[in-house]
Design a protein around this nucleic acid. Structure first.
Lengths: 222, 222, 222, 222
DNA sequence: CATTAATCGAGACGGTACGTCTAGTCTTCAG
DNA sequence: CTGAAGACTAGACGTACCGTCTCGATTAATG
C-alpha cells in the first residue's frame, strides 16, 4: 500500500513552492485536462448511479482516462467524490443587499437546500461523511473542501449583523467562535436532516421558520 | 430476484405466536437464537471494522451461521445494520422528574450524544442514511426503526411543556406537527453535525447552549 | 497468498480417500462439467493465441465460467496448461504388431512428432518447461502429467526388445534405468529440438535416421 | 507501432564504422556504456528473478537508464534476453589437443551443460524458444545469436574426425549437412532435456555414455 | 561558436491482465 | 423446511507492466 496521500490533485500540479519560483522537477507533467474530465465524469456518475454504485473504473471510462491516471491523483473513491463536489460549495454567497440577519440566514438556508437538491450532492454528502467516521485524513479533506466553505458564510453573516447593530460584539473572541460553531452546526445540521433524513422539502416557509428560531434564540431577552 | 422484503426478522417468525391461531407451517422452524447471534455479530463487526468494511460473510462467520440463513432473514447489509442498531434507540427516555422544557431538551441531547459515541452507531447511522437516498424501502425501515423512536421524545417533551404551562397549546394541530418537525430536525441535525462533521464533543455546556437557543427560539417575544 | 496447491482438479474430486469409502464432506460439490469445459477452452485458446497471449480471464469466458471457479481449481496459468495438454499424451502407444526395436522407436518418434505438430502442444510444451525452471511443484506436475507418460513407452520398448532377443537383459537394474533415461532424453530431446528449435520437419526419413542412430548406439560392437 | 526491429543494439551504432562510408547522422550519439550496462543488468535480473518475473522497467532501473533508452534499442523482452545471453555462447570451443571424436563430443556436452547450469541461461533459453514459436523474427535472432554458435562445433568436430580418419567423407554434401543436423539436434536436445526436463545432472559419466551412443551410431557396422 | 538534431533522465499516459474479494444464489447432505 | 457448508456467476477492486508520449537537459558533429 503506497497510496497517494496528497491533499488533492491541485496540490501537486500547483507546482509552485512557497517561493513561487515553480521549479518543476522532471518528467512529463500531469494533464490538467484529465483532472477536469475526471471530476466532471465523477459528478455525472454520482448523479446517475449514486455513490455506492459508482465505480472508479466507470469514472475512468467516462472521462476517457486510464484507471491508473485516476489512482495516481486520488487515493480512493471518497476523496475523489469530495473533490468532485467541492467546487459547487464555492458558489454559496450571502445575499448582496443590506438585508437583516434573519433574511441573510434564510437565504443561506435556501442556497444550501438548492445544493442538496442536486442529485450528485445529495448522494455524495452523507456517504463521504459516513466513510470519514474512521478516517482522519478524509475528514480533514472534507473539512477543507466543503465544511469550511459553508462556515465562511456564518462568520460573514455574524460580522454583517454586528455592523448593522443587530448583534453586540462578543466580549470574548473564544466565546464568539463557540457561538458561531453552534449556529453553524444547527443550521447545517437542520437542513441536512430535513432534506436527507426526514425527506421533507426545504422550502421558503420552513427556511423562514428556522431562521426565526435561530435569530430569536440568539438574542436573549432581558 | 426473489429478495426477502419483509420488515424484519421477527415479522416472519412472529406469525403464529401472538394469537396462536395461525397454524405454523411445516418443516423445521427458524432458530430464534440465530437472530440474536447475527445482530450481536453485526454490532461487533460494525464497531471493529466500520460499515463499509463490514461484509455479510464475516457477520455470518462471527455468528456461527451460514450465509444462507442471513439472506433468508434480511435483504441486504443496510437492512441488517438498521435492525442491529435499532434497539439501542429504544432506550432513549425523557428524564423522569418534573424538570423544565429546557432541562428535558438538554437531557435528550446528551442521551443522543451518548448513543453517537458508540462506535457501531457512529459508523452505521450516516452510512444507512446515505444508502437510503435512493431506496424508499430502506428509508421506511430507518424511519420506523430509528427516526420515529427519537421523534417520540420531541412529542412527549412538547406535551409535558404544555402541562407545565411553559408553552401554549397550538391553535392548529397541523401547525403543531410542523413545529415539532422543525424542532426535531434542528436538534437531531445539530447533534449529528456537531458529532460527525465538526467532530467536536457534545458535552453538557454545548447541550445547554443548544437547549437554550431552541427554547428561546420557541417562545416569540412580545 | 493462499494458493491452491493441490495436485490437480481430479485430485479433489476423486473424493475417495484411501479406504475407498468416499466420505464427501459437506457443501455443494464441484462441477465436473466445469472441469472439462475449462480444459477444452484452454486448449482452444492455446491453439488460437499461444501460451503467452493466453489469459485466464479469456479461458473463463470461453468456458462460460467465472474466474474464481478457475482459480479455485488451479493455482495459475502454467498448471492449467499442463493439465489441459496432459491427456493428449495418454494416447501415445507402441505399434501393436511384433516389429523390431528400430521400428518401434521410429513409430514413437513419429507419434511424438504428430503431437508436437498440434499448435496447442507446440506452444505449451516449451513454455511450461521454461516456467518450471524455478518452480519445483510445477516440475513435479509436468513430470507426472507429461514426462512419465512418454517415458512409459521407452520402458515398454526395452522390454519388448528383450523378449525378441534384440537386447540382452541388463546385469544391473540400476544400470538398466540409467540407460533407459539416456535413451529417453536422447529421443525426446532430439525430437523437440528438431521441431521447435531447428524448426525442421520430423518426417519419416529423419525418424528412421534417428532410430538407426540410437539402435546402433545401443548394441556395442565386439 | 513503430517498433525497432533492428537485429541488435550494435546493428545501428555499427553503421559507418565497418566501411567508413556511411556518414553518421547528426545529433547526440547513443551511449555504448548504456548497452553493456543494460545487458549486464538483464543477466543479473534473469538470474535473480527468472525470465517471466523479469520486467523491462526493473532492468532499466538496475542499469541506471530510462525505459525509453531500452526500447530505442530492443523491440521487447525476448530480444533483449537473447542478446544478453548470446555472448556466453561465444565461449564454446572444441578441446585444443588432438583427441578423438568421442572425446570431442564429450567435451562439447560438458561445456554446454556448464552453460545450462548458469541460472540466467537456464531460465532464458527455454523461455525465448517458447516465445519464438510464433515469431519468425525472434526465431531468426535466436538462430543467429545462439543456435549457430553451437552448431559450429558440430561442423568443426566432423571436419576434425575426417582429418583423423575416424569418419569417411560423405559422398553427398547434402547428406553431410543432413547428418550434421541430426547429430546437432540429438546432442543439444538430449542435454537440454536431461538438464531441464528430467532435471538430472549432466556429469562426466552421462556425457561419456551419450558420446559413446552417438559415436557408435555414426559408424554403421559392416 | 552557435546551431541543430538525436540522445538522455524522468515520469505521466492509455491499456490490459492480474489475482482477490464480496455479493447474492444454488446445490448438496443432515436434522 | 431449516440449517451448515461451500461451490457458483458476476463484477469491482487496486496493482503491475506494457509500450508510448512528453517534457527539459545533454551532447556531439555540422555550419
Amino acid at each position: 500500500m503506497s497510496r497517494n496521500t496528497s491533499a488533492g490533485p491541485f496540490a501537486d500540479s500547483a507546482d509552485g513552492t512557497a517561493d513561487g519560483t515553480a521549479a518543476r522537477r522532471t518528467g512529463r507533467p500531469r494533464s490538467r485536462a484529465a483532472d477536469e474530465a475526471i471530476l466532471a465524469a465523477t459528478r455525472a456518475a454520482l448523479a446517475e448511479l449514486g455513490f455506492s454504485r459508482l465505480t472508479l473504473g466507470d469514472v475512468a471510462a467516462r472521462a476517457g482516462v486510464a484507471k491508473t491516471t485516476l489512482y495516481r491523483r486520488w487515493p480512493g473513491k471518497s476523496e475523489l467524490v469530495v473533490d468532485a463536489v467541492a467546487d459547487l460549495f464555492d458558489k454559496l454567497e450571502l445575499p448582496p443587499g443590506g438585508g437583516s440577519l434573519e433574511a441573510d440566514i434564510e437565504e443561506v438556508i435556501l442556497q444550501f437546500a438548492a445544493l442538496l437538491a442536486r442529485p450528485e450532492v445529495r448522494t455524495a454528502l452523507m456517504a463521504v461523511v459516513a466513510e470519514a467516521t474512521d478516517d482522519e485524513a478524509l475528514r480533514a479533506r472534507i473539512r477543507q473542501a466543503i465544511v469550511d466553505r459553508q462556515k465562511r458564510l456564518v462568520l460573514q453573516g455574524r460580522a454583517r449583523a454586528q455592523e448593522r447593530g443587530e448583534l453586540t460584539p462578543p466580549a470574548d473572541p473564544r466565546q464568539a467562535e463557540y457561538e458561531a460553531d453552534l449556529i453553524f452546526d444547527t443550521l447545517a445540521g437542520a437542513v441536512v436532516h430535513r432534506a436527507l433524513v426526514s425527506c421533507e422539502p426545504v422550502d421558503t416557509p420552513w427556511a423562514t421558520a428556522l431562521a426565526t428560531l435561530v435569530t430569536q434564540g440568539l438574542r436573549p431577552r432581558p
